[in-house]
Design a protein around this nucleic acid. Sequence first.
DNA 1: TAGTGGTCTAGACCACACT
DNA 2: GTGTGGTCTAGACCACTAT
Lengths: 248, 248
Amino acid sequence: MQKGKGMPMRAREQVIPAYYRLADDIKQKIESGELKPGDGLPTEESLGEARGISRMTVRQGLSLLLEAGLIETIKGKGSFVSRPCLNRLVIDWEIGVQLNGQEYQYRLLEVKVVRSEGEIGQILGPAPEQKIIQIKRVLLQQDQPVAIEERYLPYIKGKPLLENHLEYADFPEMIAKHQECLPVRNDMDISVALLTAEQAQQLGELPQSPAMLVRSIIYSSTGKALGVSRLVGHQNHLHLRATSYPYR
Amino acid sequence: MQKGKGMPMRAREQVIPAYYRLADDIKQKIESGELKPGDGLPTEESLGEARGISRMTVRQGLSLLLEAGLIETIKGKGSFVSRPCLNRLVIDWEIGVQLNGQEYQYRLLEVKVVRSEGEIGQILGPAPEQKIIQIKRVLLQQDQPVAIEERYLPYIKGKPLLENHLEYADFPEMIAKHQECLPVRNDMDISVALLTAEQAQQLGELPQSPAMLVRSIIYSSTGKALGVSRLVGHQNHLHLRATSYPYR
DNA sequence: TAGTGGTCTAGACCACACT
DNA sequence: GTGTGGTCTAGACCACTAT
């Protein structure tokens, strides 16, 4: 723990970079209330002079706070503490997490090639001759079925779906493997639905029971839909948790 | 529009900063497929040489791509195109947007002070003598009630709730005005619930009708709960839309 | 040992906001 | 005009990776 000659002060300080320490100090002051939303920060130059670091290094530190949404900067005026935005929320979509964090298993129900029609056909392809792969799986917790997932993706010659993908891959991963285009966007729609007779039977519920429906559409960078997934979850087992954007 | 002597080439290029143009060019190459996930980028030095800009400027550009999740950098090895993460989704929680984007109105139903008890009491305060303000509002679309919102926040002396806040402020904003601590975090839980008799009556539905329930808890930086909100939405009117993190 | 990204400097000029 | 943040340079040394 001693400094010693092999470890000069200079080096010790560099274990944590100067720009990071600056950002951390200011973050502390904001979270402790010493700096309140709307308050102005010292100028970049004076922040650097106070710590003996150059302005570029100060800016590197401030850019961290900017990314995190802790401050805003206005050219010609200065940097100011911003009010945290609590209306932008992040969902980490890992199905295991959403199922109350408990263990779960998959069981493959069905894989078949269907015609492009109905709602899914509308999304996936205007060409009516387009063939679509449909994959149905059931999610189990302690051998109890808790949700049904249907995935739809265009049938592409020479891009077979490997068995282990069918069993284990999450949807964006499966699409990345099966498609020629790179998937770059995922749009989700979360709503309440009533179980169809078939779904109810597979879940061991009564038809018309309420359930959460999560529909997900994967797009390429050109805006082409590469796949659709529909997850129908038992109301008592499927929750979605979201939290406001980092503000770390 | 001519360059003229007042507008040398140098200045014209600076309209869009060099670091931004670098980032944009690389982004194009990734989205067009010229650069695929896993591919390595040229070194920072060579990127700079090719464009006649310094390495620090190159790094500023790459940091944009890093933020956006388009690339990853590994010290000592290089920068690499990353596979976009489609499992992190963002919800912009603006109630108007969630209600199918249509116009809506609020109607205040009730404001009262209640004792801290039950689920809300558990969250808001261990002190049983703590008083809690309860605010109930109904959301209307075209004069049709579509959702009920209940807000709970600790009663704090000398921090009155102004009438216009009751009517119009969103929840984080209301808490920021009424609380001494700065709200920094919002945890949401989205689930399916059945309408109580009272809720059904207020929404003009049958009791036990399925609905979407969005519970939101606002926290301070010390982890203290500053408020709880429960939004119960009619299944046909309340959707949540989420999209994968920018990847702009 | 050579190559890479990570950190940092001490300047410079610019555009913008105030007064 | 003065002060601020935005952009940019031409170096430097470091730590890490690979060979």
